[in-house]
Design a protein around this nucleic acid. Structure first.
Length: 289
DNA sequence: AGCGAACCGGAC
DNA sequence: TCCGGTTCGC
């Protein structure tokens, strides 16, 4: 598969991927989905034989964002081989990919909007933040820098319905803006544990958000964010004795450890299938926005 | 260590 | 009344 080719549907489901809680600013436009990554606009168009992926100004941005240099068939096969129990879940969501954003900031701030929150409201809140960034044409913007977000007022965000997350977002933006340039980007080349330890230093970022940011924004594919949905799923599959019990820090660690032992670098990918499978009933198959 | 409560606001 | 959590206090 090269960049000029259409991407077959079994290799990519754009709607599934951009609506599975990894990114929150993609919109449907006719037969296309449009989004941005760093300073690029990405347009994915459904044709009769597959997805046409275009991006500008960098024409490789879309390819990189969806990790299209990797064969999804290989990944699916490997996950199913490592644990045949999740074969049906993988089959149900064929085309789901873990994305690879060029810049880490959007994931960092997006996931700060998610605690104790609903998907529909998260989409709205992240859109509000994104609106402060530079217009890239076609009604989409580049996600703003921490510098820009640090100038937002907590009061204004509360007015926009951010609730108590207004405080953590503005504080995190100030904190991040005060760090050396490229602070988050550098965590990509640090070991997973080091990246997590750095992230939970921020007020408002606990273990779960740190794993979300690590997986999507920092490309740490061994990160396993354990939310209430994945917790239920993990109990059913691997920890029957914990069903109905609370998710404590120790149990959180145990779940992550089990996924990393079973799936290695595909742990985060395996998590994405199980997570999406559980959340589907909540979303009732409704496309985002 | 482990549990319960508060936090904003919208959906069910 | 319940959340795609974190933090605080017991």
């Amino acid at each position: 598969m090269t960049r000029a080719d259409l991407v077959p549907f079994n290799e990519l489901d754009v709607e599934l991927t951009v609506g599975s809680g990894q990114v929150f600013r993609w919109r449907r436009r006719g037969e296309s989905w449009i989004g941005t990554d760093a300073g690029n606009v990405i347009l994915a168009t459904r044709t009769s034989r597959g997805w046409r992926i275009e991006s500008w100004p960098d024409d490789s941005a879309g390819w990189s964002f969806f990790r299209l240099d990797q064969s999804l068939a290989d990944i699916e096969r490997e996950i199913c081989r490592l644990d045949p129990k999740i074969r049906d879940v993988v089959k149900r969501h064929r085309g789901l990919r873990v994305v690879r954003p060029a810049h880490p900031e959007e994931a960092f701030f997006s996931f700060l909007c998610t605690p104790n929150n609903h998907l529909s409201r998260i989409f709205r809140m992240v859109w509000v933040l994104g609106d402060r960034g530079q217009p890239l044409g076609d009604g989409v913007t580049q996600f703003p820098t921490a510098q820009v977000l640090s100038r937002l007022s907590e009061h204004d965000l509360r007015e926009c319905g951010f609730g108590y997350r207004a405080r953590t977002i503005v504080n995190a933006a100030r904190e991040l803006a005060s760090r050396p340039r490229g602070f988050l980007t550098r965590l990509r080349s640090q070991p997973y544990d080091v990246a997590i330890a750095s992230l939970i230093q921020f007020d408002g970022i606990g273990r779960k958000l740190a794993d979300c940011i690590a997986l999507v924004g920092l490309w740490h594919l061994e990160a396993v964010p354990v939310d209430t949905h994945l917790w239920k799923s993990a109990c059913e599959l691997y920890f029957p004795e914990w069903q109905g019990k609370a998710l404590t820090e120790k149990r959180y660690e145990a779940v992550g450890r089990l996924f990393r032992e079973s799936f290695g670098d595909l742990a985060g990918w395996a998590h994405q299938y199980l997570f999406y499978d559980k959340i589907l009933s909540y979303r009732r198959g409704r496309p985002p926005v």
